[in-house]
Structure formats: structure tokens, C-alpha cells
Design a protein around this nucleic acid. Structure first.
Lengths: 168, 168
DNA sequence: TTAAACTTTCAATAAGTTTTGAAAGTTTAA
DNA sequence: TTAAACTTTCAAAACTTATTGAAAGTTTAA
């Protein structure tokens, strides 16, 4: 396979994976493009390469900055802004885990905590089933939360080393 | 909070979380409803409770069966089909992990394997950066894959016990 | 058989999400 | 200042995905 074709395929696949996991396709594609670019790119270059509009490029780049996945860079003597992505896969994974926890997991845990406190008669099957499911899922969510916490603070080798040891 | 209100809130939150993670809202809501129902429900009851159409209910229930999250049940002497959800949070998590791995992670790993094989000149920064990102992400994806494998075959207490030990 | 009870399908439509592009805003250099 | 270079905004349009509901299909009991 040619490098050019391979790049194309990488961008496409990353976009598809993103959209299956609730991340907008264009955002994942822009991220993919920056991941495989040795040098920072301008808005113009990104628009061109991915055939997207200026508005879309601008919004997407802002979102990616909000997710902590890319950064603006300044080149001395130039007016244009350049964008650059951290290439370290572990950092990327941590960053995504961190943001999704904050944005999505934490709010749900908050609600599950509330719902766990709802009182009722354990002899009523309606209540008993509700209570079991809610508290059970709540425990699971808290374990996930702790695992993400560990991951965020961990070195890649140590983290996977510890987890993969479980195989033996 | 009233039980009725709490149920409502649980269904809503589950639907919202689902949609943020690429699972259609209605599907997550139907699943939530069945999770807190002590007895199996009919299509009719589900349509009624969630105010959705017959067609939608039917499709969603089939999908949930495809995900291995609910089952049809037969009641002796009745024509209607009843639907029942496994209430064990660990089973649910395993099942979802298993399906998403099969549907989404595996295809991406396959492409990453291919892309890792693309050859080029390491002195060309274009190639070097592409190659680093792809192989790096590929390794990460494989670790995730192995972790899911472990999870699928594991008992809940053993799995979390092993992971949470990492904290100490 | 028949017909009632129930399930499935799918084209049309609605709802939701993303994208565009032109206009407004901002910054910089002269 | 001014105007060119560049960035941001946002209403409208395009696109994608989910939902409806009526018709077709299937199963069962008599």
C-alpha cells in the first residue's frame, strides 16, 4: 500500500470509529490528520485536505482544543495559527478518558447516587428490582471511575503491566 | 423522591448516557425499563410506558436481543411474547464490551495491522510520523482487546479486586 | 379452513445533527 | 488611521438517523 493511500485509510477509519463512539466524524478525522502530520497545519491546509468548510474547520479545531487533544502553535513572524496534535497514544487515551468521565460518567454517577437513596418497601418487587439494578450499576460505575482515576495518573507501562499480569 | 419519579429518571439518564456512547436513545431506554421491571413485559406495555410506536418497539427489542441484553419469554397458555432483561450489572457490562469489541474494535485493529505493515523511509518525516502513530495506537488497541478478553472470562469480584489493588 | 391475535416490515416522515458560507469581528503592520 | 490577513459566528441547508403506522405476514385455536 502507498503511504498516501494508507494515510487516507487511517483518517477514514478513525472517523468511523469516532462516530460509533459518539464523537463527531469530522472531529475524529481532523484529529487523525494532525496525528500523522509531522509539522503543525493551518486551518487552510486542514480545510483543503479534508474538503471541509472554514466554519466547520474552525469549530472542530476549537472542540479538539477543548478536549485537550491538540494545541495552537505560533510561528515567529507569521500571522496564521498552526495546529499540532500530541502524538503519544497513551496521553490521547488518558485525555479522552478524563474528559468523558467528567462530561458523561460523573453526571450519571451523581444521579445514580440520588436514586440509590430512594426509600421503599423491599417486599414490593417493583421497588426491590429497581433498587437492586440501581445500586448494582452504581457500584460498577464507581469501579470504572476509580480505574479511570488510576489510569489518568499512571505511566503506560506500569498500567498495562499490572492489568495484563491478570492473564497469567 | 417517589419510586415512580425515580424510575422515570433512571430511564431518562440511561437513555442519555447511551446516546452519548453511540447507542440509540430508545434502545437504552427500553433496556432501562426492562432492568427495573421485576416481571417480563409485552411489546404493548413497553410501547405504552415509553410512548413509542409498535414498529419502533419491535425493532428495538430485536436489536436488544441481538446485543444479548434481553430475552423473549413464553408464558404458558398465552399468545403474547414477553421480554425480560438480565439484571446482573456485571453480565451487562461484559456483554456490551464483548459486542462492541466484535463490532467496532476488531475491524479497526484489522486495519491498523494492515497500516502497520506499510513500508517506507524512516528518514521521511511524513512516513516516520505516520508509522509511529499507527503502531502506537495499534499496541494500545491490542492491550484494550486483551483486557476485554480477560473481563469477558472473569468473575466480577476477582476482576475488580485485581484492578483496584493497583491503587494501593 | 377461517379469523382473531399477534409480529414484522418498510416507505414516508420527523427529528436530530452536521456543515456551509457569507458576514461580522479581530488583529496586525504600515 | 486603514486595509489586508486572518478568525469567529450563526442561520439556513444538507445530511443522517430514528420513528411512525398501516399493510403484509405469521401463528394458533376452534
Amino acid at each position: 500500500m502507498e503511504l498516501a493511500e494508507a494515510k487516507q485509510k487511517f483518517i477514514e477509519s478513525w472517523g468511523k470509529l469516532g462516530s460509533e463512539w459518539g464523537i463527531n466524524r469530522t472531529m475524529a478525522q481532523v484529529h487523525a490528520l494532525l496525528l500523522i502530520s509531522p509539522a503543525p497545519l493551518t486551518t487552510e491546509e486542514i480545510m483543503e485536505t479534508l474538503s471541509i468548510s472554514r466554519g466547520n474547520a474552525n469549530m472542530t479545531l476549537r472542540d479538539l482544543i477543548g478536549w485537550g487533544l491538540i494545541e495552537k502553535q505560533h510561528k515567529a513572524g507569521e500571522r496564521k495559527e498552526y495546529f499540532y496534535a500530541d502524538k503519544d497514544a497513551w496521553n490521547i487515551a488518558r485525555q479522552v478518558a478524563k474528559e468523558r468521565r467528567k462530561r458523561e460518567l460523573d453526571p450519571v454517577v451523581k444521579i445514580l447516587d440520588e436514586l440509590s437513596k430512594v426509600e421503599g418497601d423491599m417486599k414490593d418487587p417493583e421497588f426491590a428490582t429497581f433498587h437492586k439494578s440501581v445500586t448494582d450499576i452504581n457500584k460498577l460505575a464507581k469501579n470504572v471511575d476509580k480505574t479511570i482515576e488510576t489510569m489518568i495518573n499512571a505511566e503506560e507501562n506500569w498500567f498495562w503491566g499490572s492489568i495484563l499480569k491478570m492473564f497469567k
